[in-house]
Write a protein that binds this DNA or RNA. Sequence first.
DNA 1: GTCTATAGGAGGATAGAC
DNA 2: GTCTATCCTCCTATAGAC
Lengths: 244, 244
Amino acid sequence: MKTKNAVARKAVQAVKLPSLPQRPLRGARRESRRGDSTRLSILNAAERCFAQNGFDGVSLRTITEVAGVDLALVNYHFGSKDNLLREVIARRAKVVHEDRVRALEMARHEADASSPSIEAIVTAFLEPLLRRLSNGDAGWHHYSRLISQLDVLPKFTGLTGDVLDPTALHFINALRLALPKASPQSIYWGYMFLIGSMVQVISATGRIERLSRGLCRSGDIEGALHRLIPFISAGLRALGRQAE
Amino acid sequence: MKTKNAVARKAVQAVKLPSLPQRPLRGARRESRRGDSTRLSILNAAERCFAQNGFDGVSLRTITEVAGVDLALVNYHFGSKDNLLREVIARRAKVVHEDRVRALEMARHEADASSPSIEAIVTAFLEPLLRRLSNGDAGWHHYSRLISQLDVLPKFTGLTGDVLDPTALHFINALRLALPKASPQSIYWGYMFLIGSMVQVISATGRIERLSRGLCRSGDIEGALHRLIPFISAGLRALGRQAE
DNA sequence: GTCTATAGGAGGATAGAC
DNA sequence: GTCTATCCTCCTATAGAC
């Protein structure tokens, strides 16, 4: 991910990566091995460290210390720091994507013939992630903060796009049906604003505590959701009413 | 900004920094010296590099190469990489803050006795920065992307807070007056959502191009603003109508 | 799968000549 | 103010023993 030597390193990886699938088959039925707990420890530690200090702000040394494993193991299991990041993201993104699609399916089912309401669509998008946060799961908390960072860093847009764009297009399509009078451009921009508002909640930087002198808390997901859904829904509806 | 040796380095700086004000007095009337253009080159190069790769993703070597000046000069003029970042931010934040406050004053003046409309307040906040972006100024573009990144990185919230919180509190107060029925909590959350929506525009990651397959463009500030103001205004109004 | 050891270089910062 | 030269720490990645 460094600018220098990027080409050289890419060439090295192109030689090395194809050998990775030779590791014990994951997903196939097999007894759990020792390496699995190592992999997990590294993933969890990386998730937490990346979220706190950013990808480039953390060394593999720090990560393996937090994980309580040897430095060399991260390259054995993940091949490179870049790929470690990729797997950290992919692990949870997959889960959220499936939950969101499922929630949207249910909303469609309940709406019968017509399109679900804006509120229902927005809720189907927000709840799968935010409910996990309000359950206090630290891992999801770190993942959310990490996603928030990668979302605004140009050099990572490729990575996050691969993982998040399918969900985006799915919900953009749902919004288009729910807002038939909105221009396509307004729908795309509206989706961006939706993401932006949500990111302010899930990035949980502590800024709202400082601004409100403790009146609001970053961790109060219920309180945030209670404002976020009406805010986004009304905003999107306004775009649907717009002359153009 | 490294975790290790932070204490030791801080001690060193505490000895060194007080000597910095002995440099030629800035602001006082004096002929422009050679060092000024060096300072400027470094600030501009740092702004661009930080925005592209993040604070920790860029070395001082890269920055000074881009600036076309010697590596040692960054420490002579700025003392440390941390402080360089601080000055990069402060330079433009000051300008935007003043413009925003002035724009809000004008809106208040036009609204006469009553509070300005939500649209007027939101516009007073957004236009000072977004108009500069639509003028195509590359420096402002980099600054905006940098602010977007720091906004979601926990370890920088102290830095950005010092610079941006005064503006925030100023506009939060204006929103409170414009939305008398909204709870204080809703106002704070609403402000966060406002920021989040705006960040999606100013971070200009190119995501909207990819999602819309070129139909929308990150650089189309006018188009974004045309949707952003109605979106945020309607969202905030919904919070003002909320039962609680 | 895990460890030790190390390659090989990039990092921020600085002393001291000019 | 600017430049050269360098300190020393830290980095990612890997080779090879176990």
